[in-house]
Amino acid sequence: MSAAAESALPAAGEDHPRYVLRLADTSLVLGQRLCEWVGHAPALEEDLALGNIALDLIGQARLLLAHAGRIEGRGREEDQLAFLRDAPEFYNVALAEQPNGDFGATIVRQALLDAWQLELYHSLTASADERLAEIAAKALKECRYHWRFSCGWLVRLGDGTAESHARAQEALEALWRFTEELITPDALDVRMASLGIAPPLAVVRARWEARIAAALKEATLRQPSSHHYPWHGKSGVHTEHLGHLLGQMQHLQRTYPGVTW
């Protein structure tokens, strides 16, 4: 971003890097989860597809982390942000950190998040933060492909065999409770929206709900009725799973501090 563009941004203080970290961490944590599939997927084509999506997500995370580091102004670069923060300083939505489970659970998690990222990045291409808008435009193209993959599989599993239907429905029941966080604004979302940096989440909510409802219908899956618990991953309050994920991801940087890899 040019200096002029930077100074033209509304004064958002610490909120702004925090908001960008939410986006970065969601992509990073989800990408890290997908990395666990490499070499173990149900078929070679799916192995390559999951790896490609992981590559895109971690690529998005790198751009977003670098951007967050710049606007934060404390000299932290992508690797410091990725490898040297502990779980309470990660701001991903809690859905992203949920374990892979079977292929059905991975696909349900992926479809719910792909649809959300697709709508969110679509809106973010009009962000008052020009750099964020550029990153969103690039990510949007990738998210379209991710959604095509996850929605395609959601439909095949839902409308496949009795077993695949049951597994997909069970995964949906287990993960649905994490979706409220995606579409319910908290104070930071509201402040970012008022500055034009982020879209009003109500807009994202309506589009996400429509997209998911249509996909579930085609997949012959039943949308669970309630959202059980207000998760606050995006404020740093996570499920038990994130600490383990970070323990593995950050192991070398923690064991050998300050070296070049």
């Binding site: 078929a43 439909v155 496949g160 065999t161």
Partner: peptide, 12 residues
């Protein structure tokens, strides 16, 4: 572990 997935794809 992928058997049920491949069967689902074939059934679909």
């Amino acid at each position: 572990a992928g058997r049920w997935v491949r069967e689902a794809a074939a059934a679909y």
